[in-house]
Design a binder for these strands. Structure first.
Lengths: 111, 111
DNA sequence: AAACAATGTTAGGTTTCCTTACATAAATGT
DNA sequence: ACATTTATGTAAGGAAACCTAACATTGTTT
């Protein structure tokens, strides 16, 4: 229970989808998709030639963004939320790592 | 236990990957990828404009094909194997369906 | 009123993809 | 042995998909 992590990563996070497909999957216009990137809400990779490549996780993220915007939330707000959320995640991950190191040094007992 | 099927389908089988990315992921040439399609070993979808779109499952399939070909197996052979395998699967699925209908009519008891 | 946000549209240019055809070495069939 | 098939490369010409930059528009903040 730990090794499965590398596998989870595989499909959902691999950046393999073109903007045209993202457009189909989300119903957003290319303009919107690129604009949300400009506002730092989404971070596609690029091919050597400069074309954007998205992951399924990105697609889901885009749908969430679109919903918030429909609810009148501005991209700036959404960005702040994302930053706060990331911080929380990083802290949780950090805590877990420290815990792991302690376990490695002093062993664990599960009752 | 059954409804999860729709989800499993999501990432692995969705046809969203262009041939250029497939080439990167597999290390095969575009020529090879198209040839294996010509030999009916792989079945990408097409966009309205005619561009091929592959799934992650297709990518894995392509890697398997490439390995067999490296081992000297011909595309014709591989195709026969695939047909045999498909038949086995269909039969298993059919059997399961019949079983399900029987269960629906006469009920099931799990001891 | 001025500035900003969100989106559409247009233009010109690159990248990526498509099919068809010809070429070839190696394997297979007869 | 000779003909055919397999597997792959490569080239040409064209179409689809993508890119950036710029200008326009309609609301919303400030």
């Amino acid at each position: 229970m730990v090794k499965s992590l590398a596998n989870e990563f595989s499909y959902k996070d691999k950046k393999v989808i073109t903007i045209g497909i993202v457009k189909e999957l989300t119903g957003l216009s290319e303009r919107q998709i690129r604009y949300y990137e400009e506002r730092k809400l989404i971070f596609p990779e690029r091919t050597s030639g400069g074309s954007r490549r998205y992951s399924f996780a990105d697609v889901e993220q885009l749908v969430e963004i679109a919903n918030k915007i429909e609810d009148g939330v501005q991209t700036y707000e959404i960005r702040q939320e994302m930053i706060r959320e990331k911080k929380r995640n990083d802290e949780a991950a950090h805590k877990k790592m420290i815990q792991g190191q302690l376990n490695a040094r002093f062993g664990v007992r599960k009752y």
